[in-house]
């Protein structure tokens, strides 16, 4: 399987990123449509008579006086409030896997593993590797198909490729054993230090 040459940075809130993108695109389209309609009316494209009418004219007032109008406005306003609240709540949703179910059997019982316990063990093991100053890990996905995200800060004294080999080899093998899985899709981001490099003055 060929690897991609470049990737976008990983996010812990992929759902929020997708939601924001969708909602803001829809808002952009609505604003564009409203603006185009205003310009078409104002420039007389839809008729000179329309362009000379005030934005709120007696015809609009007549509609506003109908019994159903204001209740509908109220319901739409509440709908906007509810959707806005849902949008705000979506910002806090992460893809973190807090707990993994290792075994679930009616006779032997259920075995759960705290995600933080595993990621702490991984962080400790990676931090102990030569050339690593700090590591942070988190799990995402589901209990049956977990994914590991690892961020490793290097000290610049060991080749990143060597750290990559150590992480891919020993550390991830231990993680697979702990989770009792054959495969553990993992994304490792290496953070190289500024080190002794000097900037242009």
């Amino acid at each position: 399987m060929s690897r991609p040459a470049a990737l976008a940075p990983v996010t812990r809130t992929p759902g929020a990123v997708r939601t924001n993108r969708t909602v803001l695109t829809v808002l952009g389209l609505l604003l564009t449509a409203a603006g185009v309609a205003t310009l078409l009316l104002g420039l007389g494209v839809l008729g000179a008579g329309q362009a000379d009418r005030t934005v709120v004219d007696p015809a609009v007032d007549d509609v506003a006086r109908m019994g159903w109008f204001w209740p509908v406005v109220g319901v739409v306003a509440l709908l906007v409030a509810v959707l806005s609240g849902w949008w705000l709540v979506a910002q806090a949703r992460t893809d973190r896997l807090a707990r993994l179910r290792l075994d679930d059997d009616a006779t032997t019982g259920r075995t759960m593993l705290e995600g933080a316990a595993l990621t702490r063990a991984i962080e400790d093991e990676v931090s102990g590797l030569a050339g690593v100053t700090r590591a942070s890990a988190h799990l995402s996905g589901t209990s049956s198909a977990p994914r590991l995200h690892l961020r490793v800060r290097l000290d610049g004294r060991v080749d990143p490729a060597e750290v990559h080999r150590d992480v891919s080899g020993q550390v991830l093998e231990h993680a697979r054993q702990a989770l009792e899985v054959q495969r553990l899709p993992t994304r490792v981001e290496l953070d190289l230090p500024r080190g002794t490099a000097r900037s242009l003055g």
Binding site: M1, R3, P4, A6, L7, P160, A161, H164, R165, V167, S168, G169, L172, R183, L184, P185, T186, R187, V188, E189, L190, D191, L192
Partner: peptide, 11 residues
């Protein structure tokens, strides 16, 4: 790096 097809390392 190593051909571990479930591990992607990036910088």
């Amino acid at each position: 790096g190593e051909p571990e097809d479930d591990v992607v390392t990036a910088v």
